[in-house]
Amino acid sequence: MIKQITNGIIKENPTFVLVLGMCPTLGTTTSALNGMGMGLATLFVLVLSNMAISAVAAHIPGKVRIPAYIVIIAAFVTVLQLLMQAYTPALYETLGLFIPLIVVNCIVLGRAEAFAARNPLAASACDGLGIGLGFTLSLTLVGAVRELLGSGALFGLPIVAGGGITIFVLAPGAFIVLGFLMVLFNKISRSRQ
């Protein structure tokens, strides 16, 4: 169980190792808190859809497997949308389009296919939790770096007087920061081997 959780955080880190879910990783990480919010939203859907799919997978005929999974995932995403509108409206507005787009996040459908469909309920939940946490940590990291460079702040607290280099919170900064973080990740995992 523990192994499944840590697996998602480091060995199969969805962002840096599997290079999945790039759209939200780039689009929502203008600050550490936004990145974290997006990560947790994905985590919510991942855990629930993994559990639901693990429970029903054996009863689904092979040919309608994918549509069935998509309906289940879309339903949980809509639940998340409604709950966020009700209880975290500010975050919902900031993340905008990327919340409904969790449906097409390759990570969610990927885990459903690769893990949840052939593993028991508890293991699937842990897998969702692990991958979700890995995703959350990566997004928070990217968000923190961009916020620090771009606005001179961290989690909304000003650190550098006079703000930062605006380009890092704009679109190009997203690509460049993620690129360099990946280089760092590669470098570290190389030197470990």
Binding site: V19, I167, L170, A171, P172, G173, A174, F175, I176, L178, G179, F180, M182, V183, L184, N186, K187, R190
Partner: peptide, 22 residues
């Protein structure tokens, strides 16, 4: 450079393209 190969260098290139598109 080895650590840049594949996705990282692609992302950085995309960043520069995004700047041009701005």
């Amino acid at each position: 450079p080895a650590s840049f190969r594949g996705t990282p260098i692609a992302l950085i290139t995309a960043g520069i393209m995004a700047m041009a598109f701005m």
